[in-house]
Amino acid sequence: MGYDWDFGFLVSRVKNGDETYLDWLLQGLFWTLCVALSAWLIALAIGIVVGSARTLRSRWVAGLAEAWVELLRNVPLLVQLLLGYFVVPELLPRELGLWVKQDMPPALTAIICLGLFTSARIAEQTRAGIEGLPAGQRQAALALGLTTTACYVIVLLPQALRRIMPTLTSEFMNIIKNSSVAFAIGVLELTFQARQMQEDSEHGLETYLVVTLLYVACALTANRGMAWIERRTRIPGYLGSSR
């Protein structure tokens, strides 16, 4: 391999500006985390509500929730993002559509699309978590006079979410990695910056190596964070908590 590795270029200035390549990278990292974390909050909130709705007795509500899940998980993420960026503004009322096209930051479009896409996946996991609980838990909560909402918030979800922590962890790591598709609509996140650096600096190999390491570091941090939460919320004497 005759390639001359040079990571020093990171601190040199970009061709047309005062910034260094490192500044570009850090900016990319900022937007990656910003998109991923915001999308994660949307995904969790909607996913937990929709997943719970799928386990309700009301066929109407459960059917609506199922439609939500199927719609969002049967279309590729990248296609959803492009639909959200190019097609949805045309379907909105004229004024709103115009604002979306001209003034809405693409990062916001990416956050919403990634959040909704992931919400469908979290909904399925939440449903599985709830359905995995003994049926008597719901009955006991209702028999004590709790309303359906209280039954979910106080009794079912705290148990279901603990049970699905391992898959939620994967989902959290996924959303960080999936945020890379946002480059397709011009969000200045890590992948976008990597392409820009490759063209600007002729150090493409180093760039992608460093970006890869940054993604790995983010995903690992997310993983460790979730593991910490998992340990903190473990129930004494329950579900292999002796570890």
Partner: peptide, 17 residues
Amino acid sequence: LRARLGMVFQRFELFPH
């Protein structure tokens, strides 16, 4: 109304968390 009827289940159904 349910709150006024105490119910005890075969599998206890205490809330484990």
